[in-house]
Nucleic acid binder design. Structure first.
Lengths: 211, 211
DNA sequence: TAGATTGTTAATCGATTAACAATC
DNA sequence: TAGATTGTTAATCGATTAACAATC
């Protein structure tokens, strides 16, 4: 039995990866958790625990071998295991995702992009052909796609979601502000800008109350 | 002394707000925490605690008055207290934010948009004029802007951040994948797509290991 | 009164941090 | 050996959930 990785650890792993990759690989062969922690402003024990979940472990006084650590983390995050996904909605957010650092870097391959808007259907955006949403069910079921990204507006979100579920999709990354209703089996991850804004807005208020 | 609101509560408040606003205001005058919890798939005690932090409280057997609750939450989130912000980087992510449900709905007013790219400088995007980054320090300090949004690439992120800090900005919403280095006083909120991807990717792997 | 609902207090759970032993 | 660093065990902290009393 492989033990599951806590969500918080999962969220920090890309930070480590990003930092490790920024190191000059010919100069820095080993790195200590203490160093990583200081650089990313985290607790060093926390870094060590996180790394223990993802990798092989380090050596006292020496630290962790950078190269191995990078590949261990990438493996742990599934970046070496390509997952085919579809995206629905090619507004600015959809385009930002399409462009986002290749996406492929993270083991995702966007095999199809869908939209309702007649004016973009048939065109290519960042090298991907845009198809009509009508074609979604056929393509998803035929290609056995398991994951979909929703970047359409609030109005269309639930119906697009239903369509994806009907087409056999198992996981949905939801950028709309709607709380999607799905069968229990389906994984939904909400990316909620309003929530982030709420946190930030409140921090600001807190800050300036004392000043 | 007003007690601070926990981050998790803060993140859920917009969900409640969204749901409450979706109700037909002439039909539903009061709503129970039990109902909200069921609808958003949360624990009802949690909803009650959250609402207690934001609002006036409800009445047994009756619930919470919808109208009051909406304005209480909005007030609590600072949405009725307009904060002027600037945004740097008008790539797709920057545009998505500019467009995002008006932004103004959440009490933020984007007073200026900056970019490096000569081809967009001087143009208008969603009604906002795009200015050269060179003009940033003068405008921010003159207008006493306290908040900035960074949607530039990894390369430019830290230098834009330094520029914002030098110009008197106190809070930064960071969409780049770089871990920004700032003085202790400055609030940074990171919006990390890679972290979200990591969580989702892992959920998928977990899911299909058992199947 | 009975039942739904609120709100509070206590128990549980999970994540972070502190203390410390083991190791190179 | 001394000191830096890993890794583990225990303590702390914060958030969620359960139990229950109060109220309309």
């Amino acid at each position: 039995m492989i033990e599951p990785i806590p969500t918080q650890t999962l969220q920090r792993l890309p930070l480590y990866l990003n930092y490790l990759k920024s190191l000059p690989s010919d100069e820095v062969l080993n790195i200590s958790a203490t160093m990583i922690a200081e650089e990313l402003r985290l607790n060093d024990v926390q870094v060590r625990k996180d790394l223990a979940m993802a990798g092989q472990g380090g050596r006292p006084k020496i630290g962790y071998p950078v190269k191995d650590l990078i590949s261990d983390i990438e493996h742990c995050l599934g970046y070496d295991n390509i997952e085919r996904v579809v995206i629905v909605g090619l507004d600015n957010m959809g385009r930002a995702l399409l462009k986002y650092e290749g996406f492929s870097e993270y083991g995702f391959d966007i095999v199809a992009a869908f939209d309702f808007d007649e004016s973009v259907i048939g065109t290519h955006i960042f090298g991907k052909q845009v198809l009509s949403v009508e074609k979604l069910p056929k393509i998803c079921s035929r290609m056995k796609i398991k994951m979909g990204i929703i970047t359409v507006g609030s109005k269309e979100a639930q119906s697009v979601c239903d369509l994806l579920v009907k087409s056999g999709i198992m996981a949905i990354w939801n950028f709309s502000s709607v709380r999607l209703k799905v069968p229990d089996k389906i994984i939904v991850q909400n990316e909620n800008l309003a929530s982030s804004l709420a946190v930030l807005s409140n921090h600001l208020v807190e800050k300036f109350r004392s000043v």
